[in-house]
Design a protein around this nucleic acid. Structure first.
Length: 809
DNA sequence: GAGTTTGAAACT
DNA sequence: CAGTTTCAAACTC
């Protein structure tokens, strides 16, 4: 069976069921009817969607400059797409290659849209106006949260989909079969990189079999809950969405013109609330780079795969997938590990991805077709790159593999950590690779080019830990000639691809990058390798440290690359988490390997903590992983955020288990609910709870807290203003001071002057008091008066100095 | 900063 | 599953 059965899906956590609807591939318009005729949605497998009626579009555009040809094909269908999309939801996938772009829309999509965007770094507008009709190589089964890329309507895929209760639509494409398990709602993207052909992108004007080479692309599932779709006007004006509302995935792709030049794809999915007019609308994406199409009636959820022409972000066709399932919120990113030879054709990589959420295990396995879930990508004839599979000891018996295409130039050394669900990859240049051993060679197996990879789900469930949907933000570091381009997302669990060779020029940029930053080499940087490092290890970005993996045969010490995974914790958004520094732990006995330790519980390494005998670091990775396994054995959801979404009608956030407070009244930070700033719910087992809506104690506390907050804000504002005034004052007095050609006589500030100044200030204070000015206003008045006094003093001093100079005193 | 209180996690 | 112990954070002085 090719897809996950409904039963299996039903076991999945809500998070992963909240996956965005995945679409069907748009065929030519002529195919629309066919799509409609095949409503295959399986009601038995309800999808959790953010909006009952929503549309999703996935657009993949190749490097397209502004004049990219974009082709969109909209298929209209009745509710309940043939793809198994949740009724009422609409999805579309748009893929644009340099020459063409095609859009796949769910059955509900009703209109063919032409969008146009202009691309610019700051505000790119992507316009797609295509006349070509495409046959999409995707078959997406929303019910299963899978995307199947099939070569022709593969019987396997079709049957599998049917077995899953959906009628998969398989789009013919050159031997590419890709099955992607969609990840849950919270925006955990799965990135799949497929073989990319240097030749024309496979867009066929007709719905028939497309002989186009298989494009290399990444598929990302996005939990667009927080995404908003911006509907453009008929003019296709693209507006920029807030970065946090967007998720962008960049897909490295080679430009047809130059094989050496890396191409970037950005997949952005936006979700809008509802109903659009029949008119085609354009959904602006981050920086206007992505455009989306919306179909009438349905509010669009849009996933856009676009290849920005911008050179800021580039990745080389590449070849690596790093998935760290540790935390619930996590992200999977496929990145290119090495830049291929300049004239090397695009390499294709088959990336079966299977993730088990329950165990938070991701298994990518090369296996026989018997596997329930099959992910296979067939390489395009010319472009398949050997794939190297790295197996890292899985936790809980699950396997976690990384498939790494064997790039011709750069070599990859796998570092296997027993029992680790992280894989470490060391990338070195060809020369260094030969000299350096491969620590984890035994577990490495190569896959013949074109050999399909099968993901064995077995008991493994959906994979990548899901995180609250968060904006994916694209970071465009300063243009680097040969330095890697950076793509970042705000996803909490991300990987940072580190250059195997020192790249000092990009180092400063690290400070601006969130965890998970992906660095890809520039077209010319063929010898630069990149390592994928688990997010936890990566950052403390503020430390601006990075690891050079190639230079050393041993794995780098963690101290230099520890990462703060900024996961939503206890309901706190990643942004909030990011904005405030994590508190260091003080563990003394737990070795920071138990959930007592907040660092460990949050999936982070200890860094700058006050703990003793800490094992929560890379040096003790084995122990750490063992501890993680133990925790997961005890509680499979141990690393999931405790604050989740409540039932319908309830507060959006509530504690997953509830608290058990006995004496604190749930009004102290001992209480996890209170600490998370949420009220206790029915599942709490607390005694004497006062943490409920109408609680007077709680209200009092809230008021006090609000008052304190206001006070702090006022003070901050006052400081800022004072600082500004002083600065302004200095600026204005500068000419006076400079005119005198020297320092003012400090003796001018005499005791009398000070006293007079104080009197003025006091007088001002009295005035404010008499007029009953608010505190903030009073402060402002006093500060203003102080400024006047200061000005007078300085002015007088300057005058005195000038007079003194005139009489030569 | 030391000591106490608290409740989650871990253990039995 | 319930009771107990351990643990580290929150809190108090």
């Amino acid at each position: 069976m090719d897809v996950v059965s409904p039963e299996l899906n039903s076991l999945l956590p809500d998070e992963i069921m909240d996956t965005e609807a995945i679409e069907e591939i748009p065929l030519s318009q002529s195919d629309v009817g066919a799509v409609q005729s095949e409503p295959t949605h399986d009601p038995s497998v309800p999808m959790e969607t953010d909006a009952p009626v929503s549309s999703e579009s996935l657009a993949i555009c190749s490097k397209a400059a502004s004049e990219d040809h974009v082709q969109t094909v909209a298929t209209s269908a009745a509710a309940g797409s043939a793809l198994g999309v949740v009724p009422g939801s609409q999805s579309s996938i748009t893929v644009s290659t340099p020459s063409a772009l095609f859009t796949i829309k769910p059955a509900l999509a009703t209109s063919t849209a032409t969008t146009k965007t202009t691309d610019s770094v700051a505000g790119t507008t992507v316009s797609t106006s295509g006349t070509q009709k495409l046959t999409t190589p995707f078959a997406i089964s929303a019910a299963n949260h899978q995307i199947i890329l099939n070569k022709l309507a593969s019987s396997q895929a079709t049957e599998a989909a049917k077995a899953a209760g959906t009628s998969p639509q398989v789009i013919k494409q050159e031997g590419q079969k890709l099955l992607v398990t969609a990840i849950g709602k919270t925006g955990q993207p799965i990135v799949l990189q497929l073989p990319h052909s240097a030749s024309k992108p496979g867009v066929s004007p007709t719905s028939g079999d497309t002989k186009s080479p298989t494009p290399q692309f990444k598929v990302v599932t996005i939990g667009g809950r927080e995404l908003k779709q911006v509907v453009g006007s008929a003019g296709n004006q693209v507006t920029t969405l807030q970065a946090q509302q967007l998720k962008t995935v960049q897909i490295p792709k080679k430009t047809p013109a130059s094989s050496a030049a890396p191409i970037k794809f950005i997949i952005t999915k936006t979700v809008s609330s509802r109903g659009l007019g029949a008119q085609t609308s354009v959904t602006p994406v981050i920086a206007g780079r992505v455009m989306t199409q919306t179909s009438p009636v349905m509010s669009p959820k849009t996933i856009t795969l676009s290849e920005p022409h911008s050179t800021t972000i580039q990745s080389i066709p590449g070849k690596k997938i790093a998935i760290s399932p540790l935390k619930t919120p996590s992200k999977v990113t496929v990145v290119s590990v090495a830049s291929p030879p300049s004239n090397t054709s695009q390499k294709s990589v088959t990336l079966p991805v299977n993730v088990a959420l329950g165990q938070q295990i991701l298994a990518v396995q090369q296996s026989t077709p018997a596997s329930p879930v099959k992910v296979a990508t067939s390489q395009t004839a010319q472009n398949i790159k050997p794939v190297q599979s790295v197996t890292v000891g899985g936790v809980g018996g699950s396997q976690f593999k990384t498939i790494i295409p064997l790039a011709t130039q750069p070599n990859v050394q796998q570092i296997q950590v027993p029992g680790s669900r992280f894989h470490y990859v060391r990338l070195v240049t060809a020369t260094t690779a030969s000299a350096a051993g491969q620590p984890s060679a035994p577990n490495t197996s190569s896959v013949p080019a074109g050999k399909p990879l099968v993901v064995n789900t077995g008991t493994v469930r959906m994979s990548v830990p899901v995180v609250q949907a968060q904006a994916m933000k694209q970071v465009a570091p300063k243009p680097l000639t040969s330095a890697p381009q950076v793509v970042t997302t705000t996803q909490t669990q991300q990987r940072l691809i580190m250059p195997a060779t020192p790249l000092p020029q990009i180092q400063p940029n690290f400070t601006n990058l969130p965890p998970g930053t992906v660095l890809a080499s520039a077209p010319g940087g063929s010898n630069v390798g990149y390592a994928v490092v688990p997010a936890q290890y990566v950052t403390q970005l503020q430390q601006s440290q990075f690891v050079t993996l190639a230079s050393s045969s041993s794995f780098p010490a963690s101290s230099s690359i520890q990462t703060q995974a900024k996961l939503p914790y206890n309901g706190v958004s990643a942004a909030e988490a990011t904005s405030r520094p994590r508190k260091p732990c003080n563990c003394t006995k737990s070795q920071c390997l138990k959930l007592y330790c907040d660092c460990f519980a949050n999936g982070e390494f200890c860094n700058n903590c006050n703990c003793n005998n800490c094992f929560n670091n890379l040096e003790h990775e084995t122990e750490r992983l063992k501890a993680i396994k133990t925790c997961l054995d005890r509680n499979p959801e141990a690393f999931k955020p405790k604050i989740g979404k409540g039932k319908e009608g309830e507060s959006d956030r509530r504690h997953s288990k509830g608290c058990n407070c006995k004496r604190s009244g749930c009004l102290k930070n001992y209480c996890e609910c209170y600490e998370a700033k949420i009220m206790c719910s029915s599942i709490c087992k607390c005694v004497g709870c006062k943490n409920f809506e109408e609680s007077p104690e709680r209200k009092t506390l809230m008021h006090l807290a609000d008052a304190a907050e206001v006070r702090v804000q006022q003070q901050t504002a006052a400081k800022t203003k004072l600082s500004s005034q002083i600065s302004d004052l200095l600026m204005r007095t500068a000419p006076i001071m400079s005119s005198g050609g020297g320092r003012l006589p400090y003796t001018f500030v005499t005791k009398e002057v000070l006293e007079a100044t104080c009197e003025c200030l006091l007088e001002q204070a009295k005035r404010a008091e008499q007029t009953r000015q608010p505190q903030a206003e009073a402060e402002r008045m006093i500060l203003e008066e102080f400024g006047h006094c200061l000005m007078s003093v300085i002015s007088s001093a300057g005058k005195a100095k000038a007079d003194c100079a005139s009489i030569s005193c």
